[in-house]
């Protein structure tokens, strides 16, 4: 019973009509940790979150959240979690305070308890001054924070955040990160989705990269970086023709490509012999590559390396 994972999913599948959205997702999230589900648009992040938060039943597979099955023990799961979706889920025509009091009471607090909790959360999220304004008048950043606050009224042990910082400016994003760190510090399990690698890098204890409805990689951000490549070899090409030719030769090995700067990036372990061999292979006449540099891989490289393959495959099928 002890240290049972907060979230455990086995072979989750979901299709809408002929479109397979999830093709078998396996996940395990330790209690009290921050877990990031990283993936491009349409990867199936929201669908995964909706299944784990009991809003959508899976077609196949099973999942346990806070120890309860998301299909059979739906009410118990709901009592243990909170969901802050990708799009705002508050009443624009109610004030901040009214919204939070309402959520508090729906979460089972009494009238006074709900009001107290509302004040506390408004204070904690820097929204006390806006408490009596209708939520429709809030700015994008305030709304996001408020939406998250609304999810916390019931003191959940597992929190789902679907793209919590999409559309926020850097300062609001930092503020949101601080909130997430604070939650983790309080021992809450946080499951978040993001398209930003930096966000996963900054916040998450573990990261799973999803693409095309599958987990294509899973681990700490350090492990992922190492798994794909410890380092990246950046090549600056002499001209556009050399750029195109080299890009063609590298094909699926490319992890970075910038046509304006005539730069291509490829995974490497920094070993001199292998770098030399690679350069010989892609530039036998020693004319195409003007300069090169080896640098530490970023999570971006991991992301591109892991998801570009799928994208190429999708393009092929789309072309047919």
């Amino acid at each position: 019973m002890t240290r049972q994972p907060a979230i455990e999913a086995n072979g989750l599948k979901k299709a809408y009509g002929a479109v397979t959205v999830l093709a078998g997702i396996d996940l395990s999230v330790a209690r009290g940790s921050v877990f990031a589900l990283l993936g491009p648009n349409g990867a199936g992040k929201t669908t995964t979150v909706r299944i784990l938060s009991t809003l959508t039943p899976p077609d196949a597979g099973d999942a346990r959240v806070a120890g309860y099955d998301v299909v059979r023990d739906r009410p118990r799961v709901r009592r243990a979690i909170s969901l802050t979706g990708q799009y705002a889920a508050v009443d624009e025509m109610q004030t901040g305070e009214e919204n939070l009091c309402m959520m508090g009471r729906l979460a089972g607090l009494g009238r006074a308890g709900a009001r107290g909790r509302a004040r506390e959360l408004l204070e904690r999220f820097g929204l006390t001054d806006a408490a009596r304004r209708t939520a429709g008048t809030y700015s994008g950043g305030m709304r996001r924070r408020f939406d998250l606050a609304a999810g916390l009224v019931g003191r959940p042990e597992v929190i789902f955040l679907d793209e919590p910082t999409t559309g926020l400016d850097p300062r609001s994003r930092q503020a949101m990160w601080d909130v997430v760190r604070g939650l983790a510090h309080d021992g809450v399990t946080v499951f978040l989705t993001t398209q930003y690698l930096e966000e996963a890098d900054q916040l998450a204890d573990r990261v799973a990269v999803v693409d095309g409805g599958r987990v294509v990689a899973e681990g700490t951000s350090g492990e992922l970086k190492r798994q794909v490549a410890g380092e990246r070899l950046d090549l600056v090409l002499t001209d556009a023709a050399a750029f195109a030719e080299t890009a063609r030769r590298l094909g699926g090995r490319l992890v970075h490509s910038d046509a304006d700067r005539l730069t291509l990036g490829v995974a490497t372990d920094g070993d001199a012999a292998r770098v030399r061999a690679l350069l010989d292979e892609i530039d036998p006449d020693r004319r195409a590559v003007r300069r090169f540099a080896v640098r530490g891989a970023t999570l971006d490289d991991v992301f591109l390396a892991l998801t570009s393959h799928q994208e190429a495959a999708q393009k092929e099928t789309a072309d047919v």
Binding site: R50, S53, T54, L55, R74, P75, R78, R79, I81, S82, L83, G85, Y87, A88, A89, V90, D91, M103, L106, A107, A150, G151, G154
Partner: peptide, 12 residues
């Protein structure tokens, strides 16, 4: 709207 998801996750 999005509010229905919130209500449902509160088991309303």
């Amino acid at each position: 709207g999005g509010i229905i998801d919130r209500f449902r996750s509160l088991d309303v």
